[in-house]
Amino acid sequence: MKPVTDICDEYPQTVQTMQEHLIHYGRRTQFEGPVRTVSVFEDNVLVKRMLEEAEAGTVIVVDGGGRGGRTALLGDNLAAIGAERGIAGVILYGFIRDADELRDIDIGVAALGTRPQKSHKGGKGYTDVPLNMAGVLWEPGMWVCADKDGVAVLPEKPSGR
């Protein structure tokens, strides 16, 4: 995978970048893949379902309401499901928990920060919908690259990948 900075240099006309700094928690600090989207607030049932159903190599992008959320949307149990299924990563515009445990799980996890409280389990929200989040218009099927420099989003998978 090319660094996010190189992606931005190569595709200046089509790249979008997240305008919010995310912290990396999973073992993988560099990951990429096709986007699947989830929109929820303080409820992670659909996040779990997406981790269980998405194809290997997918990056799951979760709009969890940004800094307004009071609960974690992903912890070590859900991250382990994703790692076992070969999910490339999870980008959370929201919060995680079990930060120490996530370092040992082979998945990319980037989020705003941590919250110790678990989420609700009502199953409310949406999957595979366009998201307007942190300066990016996300659509399922787009291509995302993430590393410690940031998150770059392209309309499609770059050639040669």
Rank of each mutant, 00 (worst) to 15 (best):
L22P: 12
V45A: 04
D9L: 12
E84H: 05
Q117M: 09
D147I: 06
K48Y: 01
R36M: 15
V61E: 00
A146V: 10
P12E: 02
V109C: 11
K148N: 11
R70K: 12
E84T: 08
G160H: 12
C8D: 11
G57N: 13
L112M: 10
M18R: 02
V40F: 04
M1Q: 03
A99I: 10
D63K: 02
Y126N: 06
C8L: 08
G135R: 10
G150W: 04
I87E: 02
Q19R: 10
R103H: 13
M18F: 09
I87N: 03
E84I: 03
G94C: 09
M133L: 09
Q16G: 01
R103M: 13
L112F: 07
V59W: 04
E53A: 10
D63A: 06
T37I: 06
Y126I: 02
L102P: 02
I91G: 11
A146E: 00
V151R: 05
A79Y: 06
P158I: 12
V4S: 01
P116I: 08
T71K: 12
H120Y: 10
P34E: 05
T114Y: 09
M50Y: 00
K121E: 13
E32C: 10
L46P: 03
N77E: 15
V61Y: 00
E101D: 08
L73A: 03
V15G: 13
P3M: 08
M133E: 07
R85A: 14
V153W: 04
I23E: 05
D76V: 08
E55D: 15
G160Q: 14
L92A: 07
E139D: 09
T5H: 03
V59D: 07
G64E: 00
H21P: 08
P3F: 05
R85E: 09
L78Y: 03
G135F: 09
R97T: 12
L154V: 02
Y93L: 11
P12C: 14
V109R: 01
V47F: 09
T58P: 02
T127I: 13
G68I: 01
D6V: 08
V47H: 02
I7D: 06
T114E: 07
S39V: 05
N77Y: 15
G122V: 11
Q16I: 07
T37S: 11
P158G: 12
D100M: 13
I91P: 04
P3V: 09
S119L: 06
E55R: 13
Q13E: 15
A83G: 04
I107P: 00
G86A: 12
M133I: 08
E32I: 00
W138A: 05
Q19M: 14
E55V: 07
R36N: 15
T5K: 12
E84P: 01
G135M: 10
R161Q: 15
G108V: 04
G75L: 15
G57K: 06
I23A: 11
M142Q: 13
L131P: 06
R161L: 13
I96C: 06
I7G: 13
L73W: 05
V61A: 04
G125R: 00
V61W: 00
I60T: 10
W143P: 14
G125N: 06
K148D: 09
D43S: 09
G33Y: 03
G123C: 10
V109T: 09
R67P: 02
G150S: 07
E55S: 11
R115F: 13
T58C: 05
C145T: 14
D6Y: 00
H120Q: 15
G94N: 05
I105F: 15
G75F: 08
D9H: 08
P116W: 13
P158C: 09
V15T: 11
A99R: 03
L102F: 07
M18D: 01
